[in-house]
Design a protein around this nucleic acid. Structure first.
Lengths: 215, 215
DNA sequence: CTATGTGAATTTATTCACAGCA
DNA sequence: TGCTGTGAATAAATTCACATAG
């Protein structure tokens, strides 16, 4: 696939966050920004930000900071914002609908192109310009979409993942509590709402904060 | 607040996941489990699981594995599953509604006790037994709830967080893209759906998988 | 034999602290 | 002077590998 695989994963995960904020700055007409300002905004230590940026070379100027426009252009390229990534959404419940209303195209070149559900009341409708097809039409409609968002009941997660992978999907954002098993060449990110909530509660009770700390 | 603060954060974040799976095993009538089996199920390396468990002492038996019932009982105590944690949900959009339908009480003793919104069509209704109040009733209704889930527009996140903190909230699960600023004694966890999706896409393009890897 | 529990090694990530450039 | 960029130090997390108990 692509170039320098030396960027730490922790850094890679922060890139979209940086990108969005730099984008905001640009819209506000701001011309320069320091790692300290960025730090206040995105809640990441300024040394970490400088370190993160440094993996891509010297993006700033000493004593000045970073040029917003330049930074934006750089991250646009780095995050492949030129090419659109098409995504399919599986499961048009409340969570799925929330995604459909979320306009990813606005800042990020990611577009949910179609959604699937088995509920006949939903099939045939359009939500935020995204058509909802019946789950049985999946093979026929999916095309070469490689990314799927799973917002279905946990009990169906594994079989649906298997099916999607069979149709060429390579990345799955799984909102199901089920930890799905996939071949080693498939990437799955889990977002487990119950776990997140429980973890927050656990930290609250066992990790008293006095000095500054963050997730 | 509480005892041994020597449990690594990474471990603490996995505890709810372990708990849920052990709970499942127990419901299935399983009596024993090995770190290897757990590993397959929750997708965490078995050595990491043993290490995680070891912070709590010797929970297993050599050559045998772990007794499911014992483990469950242990985690129940550790995760404070005896005492219920009450939570308020702010913003009854699609995402908020998804949370209301999610029955946290089933496995975890976390209960969304009330929800708030400004939409008069929603105020006064009840969703999954949770009453929806007008946002202006917040001070009056909130009581001593210390945890809030923020599922409102980003533009309102900071002011709402300030308000909640003023009312005694100490933990916030923030689904807003806004990175809110809070006093150092307040805990905020961010879950940023757009960032998660972008990060997945970035990893797909730049971190080709051949051998096993995970989020 | 089997699978834990854990020292030791390794890897990954963060943070300090400051030389050096604009 | 004010900031970056980065060596070096530190911290955190993972993983190896095996002695040891059942």
């Amino acid at each position: 696939m692509m170039e320098q695989n030396k960027i730490p994963q922790a850094t890679a995960k922060r890139l979209p966050l940086y990108y969005r904020f730099i984008n905001n700055l640009n819209h506000q007409g701001k011309k320069r920004v320091s790692s300290k300002e960025l730090s206040d905004a995105v809640k990441v230590d300024s040394a970490t930000i400088r370190r993160d940026f440094s993996y891509f070379g010297a993006l700033g100027k000493k004593g000045y900071g970073y040029n917003v426009e330049y930074l934006l252009e750089f991250f646009r390229k780095t995050l492949d914002q030129d090419e659109t990534t098409d995504v399919a959404l599986i499961g048009v419940g409340n969570l799925g609908t929330a995604f459909l209303h979320y306009n990813f195209m606005k800042n990020n070149n990611i577009a949910i192109k179609m959604a699937f559900d088995s509920d006949p009341k939903k099939v045939g409708t359009t939500i935020s310009d995204v058509p909802v097809y019946h789950i049985e039409e999946l093979d026929e409609k999916l095309g070469d979409i490689q990314v799927a968002i799973l917002t279905i009941p946990a009990s169906e997660a594994q079989s649906m993942a298997d099916h999607l992978i069979g149709q060429g999907v390579e990345g799955i954002l799984n909102f199901t509590p089920a930890r799905i098993t996939v071949p080693p060449n498939i990437r799955v990110h889990h977002i487990d709402l119950a776990v997140e909530l429980q973890a927050l509660v656990y930290f609250l009770k066992h990790y008293p904060l006095t000095t500054d700390e963050e997730e």
